[in-house]
Design a protein around this nucleic acid. Sequence first.
DNA 1: CCAAAAGTGTTACTCGTACACCCATGT
DNA 2: ACATGGGTGTACGAGTAACACTTTTGG
Lengths: 212, 212
Amino acid sequence: MYRYPYPHPAVATDVAIFTLRDGALAVLLIRRKGEPFEGAWALPGGFLKEDEDLDACAARELSEEAGLSAGVLQHFGNFSAPERDPRERVISVAYFALVSSDRVTPEAGSDAAEARWFAISSLPALAFDHTEIVQRALVALRSGLLTSDILLALLPARFTLSSLQEAFEAVSGEAADKRNFRKRIIGSGIVRESDEFERGSHRPARLYERAV
Amino acid sequence: MYRYPYPHPAVATDVAIFTLRDGALAVLLIRRKGEPFEGAWALPGGFLKEDEDLDACAARELSEEAGLSAGVLQHFGNFSAPERDPRERVISVAYFALVSSDRVTPEAGSDAAEARWFAISSLPALAFDHTEIVQRALVALRSGLLTSDILLALLPARFTLSSLQEAFEAVSGEAADKRNFRKRIIGSGIVRESDEFERGSHRPARLYERAV
DNA sequence: CCAAAAGTGTTACTCGTACACCCATGT
DNA sequence: ACATGGGTGTACGAGTAACACTTTTGG
């Protein structure tokens, strides 16, 4: 038993883990085992341990619950309404993570299991205030798209410019002009050419990789 | 005594309250009364109460410790290193606030007292990790300058474009071109003309006010 | 030879930036 | 009259957005 002269809230991190599935942005949800919200879908998350800081807690949740380490793991907000958890007071420190589609286990127990990817266009009702958390995660994710290299975290180490553009469009929700997109990416210096090509029933596509 | 089966950290908000003094950006610091860091300068802050959320806690700290209500009060980060407070584990949720220079009590007990404004160019050593918190507050504040109306919170309800430009330069640390600055502000629609003028030993300056 | 995606330039427009002089008041 | 800050326009360059056809492979 831990005792304090004043009330202390519990502190947890919740992580919205995004990836691309079939060209659409998807988020990982787990099915809750216990009360409250038993059986409901929720974001993976867990309580802060004594010897770790919040970033480490989020990273641990990511690897424990999803078996992944992310290219991007970023704090975007706190959720602290007094009654958001009916058991006791819980402060939720929210992160979003982006993981490469080639590290995602294809159907990771998707049939009747505990963890599943959901396209963001068709989310179920979520436990607690997690629906709001996901919405806020999307806003934070989109707001930093243009000026950053976070998109690369959604792709394998080598990727075509077309797949990068697909990733951009899946996240931003808007179509982009092919020539302008390529100009911007090449000009920004965040990627460099490799010598390899991806083959298919069409002209081979040059593979690029993260610069530096 | 409050008891929990697992360890719970204390949760507090710390608020970097900025204003303009003599044309320079200044932050409010209080002198600590008790251990640890007794007598050292620190950001105002306090523990989260049971019935308030984090935003309300920060707003309460702002009004309790500074006697002010701010035009802007914005979360910008969490500080959670396990040993950042030697007494017990404390998670600090950090906010910055901007208050109008005309609401600032001119020398608010500044002589030998507990609270004082410090120009950000000459901060003393601070308690805990508060030096880092102030630095991060400045980065967050500056990053949102151009596309927002937060600067208006530093000024009285009516202000001249020159004083707005001074505020911009004090926060950003860089000089701006007068004509371009005015074009941008007028074009953005965040201010509108009033019919009044400020008089001095020069041509009268039109007063503006927040639009909408 | 047909389908499918890759790759490639130019033009128009918008936006940001650099820059200097006259104006209205107080003293 | 002079000192002080207020107020104004233009020209150039950079960056962004619109736009369509040829190339290379697999089937």
